[in-house]
């Protein structure tokens, strides 16, 4: 069985062409990357603002409640609404991207919010006391200090999106999920397992890349034991389910 899956994976013919692995991988990365980018552009400023101002915290609570909705249900509801309103590929792509953006937002919001709001009150007090303006406190103190939690939110969002992009194949879009859905339809378990290995590998690689990026970007002073403890405590906040 494992040998079969391995042969399927290394067969050069499976990698080429419009339905080849390379193309599917690219599609998967496109959907996921675009969705996380859009979600980050919307969610990070909102989360940081709520954390800084300490107002409108209900937005975080509402976003967290969204996580209880099964992503499969969300995907189908949005797809059904769009299918009669859009033509061609857009009828599947637009709802997919929308759902992925919606699912990426809660961990990003929570990461930015808790990252900023958990900045040591003494550091914030000192920053104002030294004559920093609100903007300076946010950009020079709060956001750099929030980076570990912003990153953990980003990683959760990326995993959530990669997972959900996989099941989005069930509404006829591309990506690696195709192998799982098509393999199931054709009763071809080898294809399904091969696709599953690819999806799992993609998730692990993306998470690894983001972890490496985090090490590069996060200031060294925030990587000590104490902040690691704080990060762990807050990780439950940003942790997304691998729902997909």
């Amino acid at each position: 069985m494992i040998a079969q899956v391995w042969r399927w994976l290394v067969d050069g013919a499976h990698w080429q062409g419009g339905t080849g692995i390379a193309q599917r991988l690219l599609e998967h990365l496109e959907y996921s990357g675009m969705s996380v980018l859009i979600a980050a552009i919307i969610a990070l400023p909102i989360g940081a603002f709520i954390g800084h101002a300490g107002r409108a915290k209900w937005i975080i609570a509402v976003a967290n409640a969204f996580r209880a909705i099964p992503s499969l249900g969300l995907l189908f509801v949005v797809a059904m609404w769009f299918v009669s309103r859009l033509q061609g590929d857009a009828a599947y792509l637009v709802p997919t991207i929308i759902v992925l953006v919606i699912l990426a937002m809660p961990p990003l919001l929570a990461g930015a919010y808790s990252g900023v709001s958990e900045v040591d009150p003494a550091a914030r007090d000192a920053a104002y006391g030294m004559g920093m303006t609100h903007r300076q406190v946010l950009t020079r103190v709060e956001l750099p200090c929030a980076l570990p939690l912003i990153f953990s939110g980003l990683r959760s969002a990326a995993l959530q999106v990669i997972a959900t992009a996989t099941i989005a194949a069930s509404i006829s879009v591309g990506g690696l999920g195709r192998y799982l859905i098509d393999g199931l339809a054709n009763s071809d378990y080898t294809e399904m397992a091969g696709g599953a290995v690819l999806v799992a590998a993609l998730a692990l690689v993306v998470d690894g890349v983001l972890a490496a990026l985090q090490r590069l970007v996060v200031p060294g002073g925030l990587r000590t034991a104490r902040s690691a403890r704080r990060r762990r405590r807050a990780s439950a906040v940003t942790q997304a389910s691998p729902t997909g």
Binding site: D120, A122, A123, R124, D125, A126, A127, G129, M130, R140, V141, P144, C145, L147, P219, G221, L222, S227
Partner: peptide
């Protein structure tokens, strides 16, 4: 301005 727990910026 000096405060009780110093309030140093951990990122600097």
């Amino acid at each position: 301005y000096v405060i009780q727990n110093a309030g140093l910026f951990p990122n600097k």
